[in-house]
Amino acid sequence: MAIAAGTERAARLAFNDVSLSYFTPSGETLALDSVSFQIGVGEIVSIVGQSGCGKSTLLSLLAGLIAPTSGTVSIDGQAVSEPSAAIGFMLQQDTLFEWRTILENTLLGPELRGHDRAAAHERAEGLLDRYGLRDFKAHFPHQLSGGMRQRAALARTMCLDPSILLLDEPFSALDFQTRIAISDEIAQIIRSEGKTAILVTHDINEAVAMADRVLVMSRRPGRIKSQHVIDFAVADRERASSLELRELPAFNHAFQAIWKDLDVHV
């Protein structure tokens, strides 16, 4: 099934008939099977699917960490061959370096890419101020709470000013309340900065609340099974928190449809 970018937006990311197999001594795992879809500029897309269906694999392909077995993955029409500066990745664990201060962690990207130190410093300070970590720049990660650590990880990702964000279950290590607050905040930031984003999650609520579109993946081998355009009135999106969105009929409708497609057998 070919899945086009959301309404009247130019394609930013494209998977074109992508398959990926992992080879290990114990055998061959077909993780992704003929996956095709596009994501438009400034679009936020959630990908849901059960554990092991190939969600992380999909993001690794986009990040240029692995190459497809067949098919092409492209960003702005260019085939991906190595980690691109356009992409920022957020992992499930915040992976902050415990031997660096929050500010030094934030500066990791510019440091690795050899960017101008003074400019990066200024940018990092600005981001930490905005993300509510003004007083924690000189702290070490173990001195921060889970939510603060995740914000610091976001600041680190944003410090290279990526135009595309890949989020791999970034909230799953947080407790429920922090998780809702942080996901609202991060969705807000992504929207206000006009980033294109893919959010991988197995929380349907989170997927619907944060995204413009939800792609549902089948069990292994991963295929795109269906897509659901999430159609909240723009005003609702801007005003409401995700908890309030959850009260809307459109939310419930999308939730039910996705739940059915996920076809969970317990």
């Binding site: 992409i87 990745f89 992992l91 992976t95 370096f97 990791l108 690795l112």
Partner: peptide
């Protein structure tokens, strides 16, 4: 060494040498 830290440095464009000096040795 934490595979996720290594993965992170790679997504940020780090070279093998940088993975060694920024992650593996300090960790």
């Amino acid at each position: 060494t934490d595979k996720n830290k290594v993965k992170l440095v790679r997504t940020l464009g780090g070279t093998t040498w940088q993975i060694l000096t920024k992650v593996v040795l300090p960790a």
